[in-house]
Design a protein around this nucleic acid. Structure first.
Lengths: 362, 362
DNA sequence: TGTCCTGACCGTAACGGTTCAGAACCACTT
DNA sequence: AAGTGGTTCTGAACCGTTACGGTCAGGACA
C-alpha cells in the first residue's frame, strides 16, 4: 500500500466516472444534478476521505477569500488590552460574523518593518485601525487591489472611513472646564509619531503628528482654551509612547512637577486619565476639588470611576467599519461615516480652587 | 481607453519580455537574477500597478496559507467579553505574531448550524477552543486535512491538546472548604450541553455533559466532598447556559432559595462566582462569614474582589496552543500540554457558622 | 583544448477548483 | 416527423502562481 495522496475533486470524479463539473456541482449547486447522483458523489467522497473543495483553490477561481483583514500597528495583543480597541474589534467581529466572513488578524512585528504579512494575507478587503499616516503597512494595504476602510485614522484621500468628530467632541469637553473657570490646564496625549518621545510635545511636533486622531484632539483642546483667552503655546502638552495607566501617572507627575499651579488635566484617553487620577491620589490631591481631570473614550472602567469624559461608540464604530467594507460593491454606500459622541459628566471636573482656597482651604 | 484588467505576473513578464519564473524570482528569490534585471522588473511592476504576487494563487501553489484558524463555539464577540477567553486569544495571537502567521477568526453563527465557514477558511491549521464534544463545527474541522490543536476541550482521540488538570485543581479548592468544615455546599456550573437548561442538573446530566471541562470540574468537586463524607447525589448543582454575572446571580438565588442552609457555593468560573457574590450581598449575607464562595480561572476582576479561586495561566495556554500547532511538522513535539494551576487564597472562604451562630450571631 | 562549474534565465507542469456554453437525452406537443 | 423545452451532464478554458528540471553562455581549470 502506497502513501495515498489526498483525494481531490478530480480523483473523485475519476473514481465515479463523472466529470469534475458534476462533483463540483454536487457541493455547490445541488439543483444541477439528480439527487441520486449527488448522493453517490457525497458518499464516495466520504469513503475516499475527500474533505470537500479546497478553499484556497476555490478562492483563486472565484476571487473571493471570504475574509476581512484587520491591520493594527501595535502588537496584536495590544488590541486585547486596550478597552477601546477591544470594543472596536468586537463590533467588527460582529459585522463579519453577520456576513459570514472570517476576520483575519494580520500579524505585525512592530520591530521589523516587515510588510510581507500584508501581501500574504488572502482577504477580500482590509480594515485599518489606528495606524500612523506614514506607516509602511498602510502603504502596503493601499497597494493591494482590494477595498479598504480606515477607522479613525489615518485620513487617506479616496479611502472610505469611519470615525467620530474628535475635534468637536473634545472641544465641548474642554469648554466645560473653561466655563468652570479653569485657565491653567495641562494636557496628556498619546504618541504623536512613530518615534518615541516621552516628554513635552512642542507645538511643531503636535502639528506634524502622524496620528490624525491625536492631532485633532489636541487642536480641539486648543480651540476651547483659545476661546477662553488662553494662549495655546503656553499650555504644557506631555506625550507618552505607551498607552497605559502607568504612562498617565508619569505624565501627570511630569506636568504637576513642572507647574504645580495647574488646576485641570485634559487627557486624550481614559486610560491616561485613570493613570492621572492615580497620580493625583498619590499626591494627596483631591479630584475634582484640587484638580479636575478629563478623559476620552468612555470605557467601562472610566464610567466606574466617575470620570468626566467623552463617550464614543467603539463597538458601533467597529460594526460600521465592517459594514462599510462589506458593502463596498455598492456604489451608493456612504464613503464616510461619522458617529455621534456624548459627554459623560462624571464627577472629576469642578471649578478650580481660588488662590486663597489653595492656601487656606475651602 | 479600455478597462484594463489588473496586471498579473504573466502580463508583467510579457511586458518585460522575460519569463514568469523570472518575475516570480524577482519577488521571492532575489539571488536568482541579476540586480539590474530585478530592478527593471520591480520598476515595471510599479509602472503597471502590479501589486506583487497574488496571495491566494501563491497559497494554492505553495500549499501554505500563512494563517491559523480559530474556532469558537460562541459568537465571536463572546470571546471579547469573557476575560479567560480573551487571555487565551491574546496568547494565541502572540504566538501567531511571533511566527508571522495570521490569525483567522472563523465566523460562527450559533443559530444556524452552518459549517460552511469552516470549509471556506484558507488556513494551515486550526485551534479549537472550548466547544462541546458533539459540535458539528468541530467535526468539520477534523474532516479537514490540516493539523489541529484543541484547547481545554473537547478531548479528541489523536488530536493534540493543551489544557490544565481541571479536576485536580478544583478538588484542591473544594478540599479547602471541607477542611474548613463545610458540608452543605451548592454548586454553580456553566452549560453542560448544547441545549439550554437553566436549572438543576441531575447527576445523569452531569455525567453526560458534552463539555469536558465542566464535567471534570464537577467530578473534582464530587471527589473532595465525597472524601469528606458528603453524598454527591444530594449536592445541588445548578446550571446556567449563559456565562455572565447575571447567571451567577440567578443561580445563587435559586440555590439559596432551595436550601437556605447552604454554607458555601462552589462556582466553576469566576464570572459566575462574582455574580453569586452580588446575590449574597443583595440578601445581606456577608462573605465569607455567612457564606463562602469560590470561583475558577483567576481573572483580574476576581483578584480585585479577593475571590478565593484557582488561577489558570490563560495567556500561556493560548500561546502553548499556537506553538503546538505551528510545530506540528515536528514529530518530537509534545502531543499534550498540561499547564500548572495555583490556588488564590483570597478572602471569600471561611469556616461555616454554627447553627447557634446562625440564630444568635457570632 | 576539452571539461566542469556557475550564474542567469526559461518552459512546462502542476496546484484544485469554478464556470459557461453546449451535448445528449427524454417527454411532450403540434 | 419535426419541433420544443427541460433536465442532466460534459469539455475545455481559466484563475495566478511557484516547483522543478532544464538550457545556455562564459569563465576557470588542468
Amino acid at each position: 500500500m502506497h502513501v495515498r495522496r489526498p483525494a481531490t475533486l478530480a480523483s473523485l470524479a475519476a473514481e465515479l466516472g463523472v466529470s469534475r463539473t458534476t462533483v463540483s456541482n454536487a457541493y455547490n449547486r445541488p439543483d444541477q444534478l439528480s439527487p441520486e447522483l449527488r448522493r453517490r458523489v457525497l458518499e464516495t467522497a466520504r469513503r475516499l476521505g475527500y474533505p470537500g473543495p479546497d478553499p484556497v483553490a476555490r478562492s483563486l477561481r472565484t476571487r473571493k477569500a471570504g475574509a476581512v483583514g484587520l491591520l493594527l500597528t501595535e502588537n496584536l495583543s495590544y488590541a486585547f488590552r486596550d478597552p477601546a480597541a477591544l470594543g472596536f474589534l468586537e463590533g467588527l467581529a460582529l459585522a463579519c460574523e453577520g456576513a459570514g466572513q472570517g476576520l483575519h488578524l494580520v500579524p505585525i512585528n512592530p520591530e521589523r518593518e516587515d510588510v510581507a504579512a500584508v501581501h500574504r494575507a488572502g482577504v477580500d478587503g482590509f480594515v485599518v485601525y489606528s495606524v500612523p499616516d506614514d506607516d509602511p503597512h498602510l502603504a502596503a494595504v493601499l497597494s493591494r487591489p482590494v477595498p479598504t476602510v480606515v477607522a479613525d485614522q489615518p485620513i487617506v484621500e479616496g479611502v472610505d472611513r469611519v470615525g467620530i468628530d474628535d475635534r468637536a467632541a473634545i472641544t465641548a469637553l474642554a469648554q466645560r472646564l473653561t466655563t468652570l473657570g479653569h485657565r491653567r490646564v495641562g494636557v496628556i496625549c498619546m504618541r504623536l509619531a512613530r518615534d518615541r518621545n516621552d516628554g513635552f510635545a512642542s507645538v511643531e511636533r503636535q502639528q506634524a503628528a502622524h496620528f490624525h486622531v491625536q492631532r485633532a484632539r489636541l487642536s480641539g483642546v486648543a480651540d476651547a482654551l483659545g476661546a477662553a483667552g488662553v494662549e495655546w503655546a503656553r499650555v504644557p502638552v506631555v506625550e507618552r509612547f505607551d498607552h497605559s495607566t502607568a504612562s498617565g501617572e508619569s505624565a501627570a507627575a511630569q506636568l504637576l512637577d513642572s507647574d504645580p499651579q495647574l488646576t485641570a488635566l485634559v487627557c486624550t484617553s481614559d486610560i491616561l486619565a485613570l493613570g492621572a487620577m492615580n497620580e493625583a491620589r498619590r499626591r494627596g490631591l483631591r479630584v475634582p476639588q484640587d484638580l479636575s481631570i478629563t478623559g476620552f473614550d468612555g470605557i467601562p472602567e472610566a464610567e466606574r470611576h466617575g470620570l468626566t469624559t467623552v463617550r464614543q461608540p467603539v463597538l458601533e464604530k467597529g460594526r460600521a467599519a465592517g459594514k462599510l467594507l462589506l458593502a463596498s460593491v455598492d456604489p451608493t454606500r456612504p464613503r464616510e461615516v461619522t458617529l455621534d459622541t456624548e459627554i459623560l459628566s462624571g464627577a472629576t471636573a469642578a471649578p478650580p480652587r481660588t488662590a486663597e482656597e489653595r492656601w487656606f482651604g475651602p
